[in-house]
């Protein structure tokens, strides 16, 4: 187990200068000769801290500022204002000791050498990180086993499937056993099976090494399976920091009870239990306040002859969608 390290961010902000161009030839000329720039505040006074070993998901619409925050944490982008401490270092100084502690995986960019087998890229990375040949081989084979790749290590990268390539990218970024992993959409474009294998690997890696993982993803399944804690970013600000369950209970105070009764019962007889969403022959769906769910289910079971019963949360995707369109958590 590693010693407790964490990420501390205080009052972080980033202002970009962006050049705007009007459409058409006229716009092009005026853009060429007289470039007008605007200041865009991509991140506005963000605060949070993360304990060692935590897996935290960044949620946000496109352009919300997730990637900018992630890149400031890696030290790739200099913040305009604020304080960052990652694993005891100030990221923007990019000291070697800091760089050996972190890694960045980007789903849409690759570092593997396109024309050579992944093994060659791994060796280059191992040399750059100053890892001895024997040690690097052990690490590579251990990670390869966890990721379930074998022969693919010796096949040119261009001949690998997207899923195999992503696994190899992960391996290339973990060769130096970093303690903080920044993952920017690591499952982008992967099929459902490949996504779940990558998720399984990340969970296992976190368990084995106690590495801190920060993740952005557009796939809700990534967030729900991997991240006990989420940070919602909206227009450069953090509008929610906490666990997924309490977010969904705050967003939606109701649960859905779906059940099937043996005999046909009239609609009116259910209205006293909750809000009726749908009645279709014997199938009934009711919306019930969260804190009354147990009581209502007991009553239903005693009052009717129930064949099947299920309690559901409203789909999380819809709830998150609501946050981004409203810009706040209720």
């Amino acid at each position: 187990m590693r010693k407790s390290k964490h990420i501390q961010v205080e009052n972080l902000s980033k202002i970009y200068r962006v050049a705007d161009k009007k459409p058409g030839l006229k716009g092009t000329f005026s853009h060429f000769f007289n470039r007008s720039t605007n200041n865009v505040e991509a991140v506005k006074g963000v605060n949070f801290s993360i304990e060692a070993g935590e897996i935290v998901g960044f949620l946000g619409a496109n352009g919300a500022g997730k990637t900018t925050i992630l890149k400031m944490l890696c030290g790739l982008i200099h913040p305009t204002n604020g304080y960052i401490n990652v694993a005891g270092f100030s990221p923007q100084r990019r000291q070697n000791a800091f760089l050996k502690e972190i890694t960045l995986v980007m789903g849409q960019k690759q570092q593997l050498i396109w024309d050579l087998p992944p093994m060659d890229s791994f060796q280059v990375n191992a040399a750059v990180y100053g890892i001895l040949e024997m040690e690097s081989k052990n690490i590579i084979f251990e990670l390869a086993e966890m990721l379930d790749i074998g022969n693919e290590l010796y096949r040119p990268v261009r001949k690998l499937s997207l899923g195999q390539r992503m696994k190899a990218e992960l391996l290339a970024s973990l060769i130096h056993s970093p303690s903080v992993l920044f993952l920017d959409e690591p499952t982008l474009g992967l099929d459902v099976n490949a996504q779940s294998r990558v998720r399984g690997f990340l969970t296992e890696y976190n368990k084995r090494t106690n590495a801190t993982i920060l993740l952005t993803s557009h796939y809700m399944a990534d967030i729900t399976t991997l991240c006990p804690r989420i940070l919602c970013v909206h227009e450069g600000q953090i509008i929610y920091d906490g666990d997924l369950d309490s977010l969904s209970s705050r967003l939606n105070p109701n649960k859905k009870i779906i059940f099937e009764v043996r005999s046909d019962v009239s609609k009116e007889s259910f209205s006293k239990y909750g809000k009726i969403q749908e009645i279709n022959k014997g199938f009934i769906s009711l919306l019930v306040s969260r804190n009354k769910v147990n009581f209502i289910v007991n009553q239903l079971l005693s009052d009717f002859e129930i064949v099947d019963l299920e309690i559901k949360d409203p789909p999380i995707d819809e709830l998150i969608g609501d946050i981004f369109s409203n810009g706040k958590v209720l």
Binding site: A97, K109, V128
Partner: peptide
């Protein structure tokens, strides 16, 4: 242009050397 400089800058090696 492609943003792969990110990978270079995150390696513990002089980026100009790389």
């Amino acid at each position: 242009r492609e943003g792969t400089l990110d990978f270079v800058l995150l390696k513990p090696i002089d980026s100009q050397f790389w």
